[in-house]
Write a protein that binds this DNA or RNA. Structure first.
Length: 112
DNA sequence: CCGATGACTTGAA
DNA sequence: CTTCAAGCCATCG
């Protein structure tokens, strides 16, 4: 299996697409699943590139460790991310997920 | 190769 | 509560 430059992204996107509807996860959780939580920045960066990716990526289901929609500023409009999550049953308040612990989805545990 | 950037995280002041 | 600092890793010019 020859590795590609996009292999890292592919793993991130793959995990992102595995996130169940109405659930969310953190950049650190994905990074941790990939090997190191320190790669959280790369996860976020991969999300930035998701706009240029060839397929849809539920980046709106990915938040930071606080459950805050840090990436909403990168979505079109301004409430796109919030509306998407609300549409999935996620309760938000001031760009923060209220029941974060309830909807939190850890790939390293759920996909164990 | 080097420097800068980034949707992160943790901890300390 | 807010703000700063350091760590970490991949990509780009």
């Amino acid at each position: 299996m020859p590795k590609k430059e996009t292999d890292f992204f592919e793993r991130v996107y793959q995990v992102a697409e595995l996130i169940p509807r109405g659930r969310v996860t953190s950049y650190g959780a994905i990074a941790n699943y990939l090997g190191s939580y320190r790669g959280a920045r790369m996860v976020g960066w991969a999300m930035n590139k998701c706009s240029s990716w060839h397929r849809f990526v539920p980046a709106h289901r990915v938040v930071n460790s606080k459950g805050v929609l840090t990436g909403k500023h990168h979505f079109p409009g301004g409430e796109t991310m919030s509306e998407l999550l609300r549409n999935e049953g996620v309760k938000l308040m001031d760009n923060q997920i209220i029941n974060f612990q309830e909807v939190f989805w850890d790939p390293s545990k759920e996909l164990l």
